[in-house]
């Protein structure tokens, strides 16, 4: 049997713009994945602990407040501490081009800005999921 991809869609930080997170969650469901959604205002600790319990293959972080440099990196740092580096982490939101190299270096494998086709996110996950 083909293993189902499990994804955690999380909204770190304080912004309440969940339009993108919800669209991506639904699209991943429609692509046959199991999607756990955390809701708003999650700390990095909450996200990582949820990822552990749900044993997800992918974490999708959505943030539109501009706090991505701090909060996305909090998540990848905690994952390293938990020996969960094999979880694919992707991020989306209003993210300036110049921030992307640093985010990738910190372990955010894919960064998706406004205007991304959902299909591209689905494909990226299918191609890059590590387990």
């Amino acid at each position: 049997m083909k293993r189902k991809i499990r994804v955690l869609i999380a909204k770190p930080g304080l912004d309440g713009h969940d339009r993108g997170a919800k669209i991506v969650a639904r699209a991943l469901r429609d692509a046959g994945m199991e999607v756990v959604y955390t809701g708003l205002h999650q700390t990095a600790e909450m996200i990582v602990k949820t990822a552990v319990q749900e044993d997800v293959d992918v974490i999708g972080l959505s943030l539109l407040s501009g706090a991505h440099m701090t909060l996305f990196m909090d998540v990848t740092r905690l994952l390293k501490g938990k020996d969960m580096e094999d979880v694919l982490v992707v991020g989306g939101g209003v993210i300036p081009e110049e921030d992307i190299p640093a985010l990738k270096k910190a372990g955010i494998a894919g960064v998706f800005g406004p205007g991304t086709r959902i299909e591209d996110i689905v494909e990226f996950i299918r191609k890059n999921v590590k387990r």
Partner: peptide, 23 residues
């Protein structure tokens, strides 16, 4: 206003981490 202000948190609140002056 930035997010901590919108949620009624001061800048030094733990949930304000990374959000200061961003939006």
């Amino acid at each position: 206003f930035d997010y901590p202000t919108l949620y009624g948190y001061d800048t030094d609140h733990p949930l304000a981490r990374g959000e200061f002056g961003k939006c």
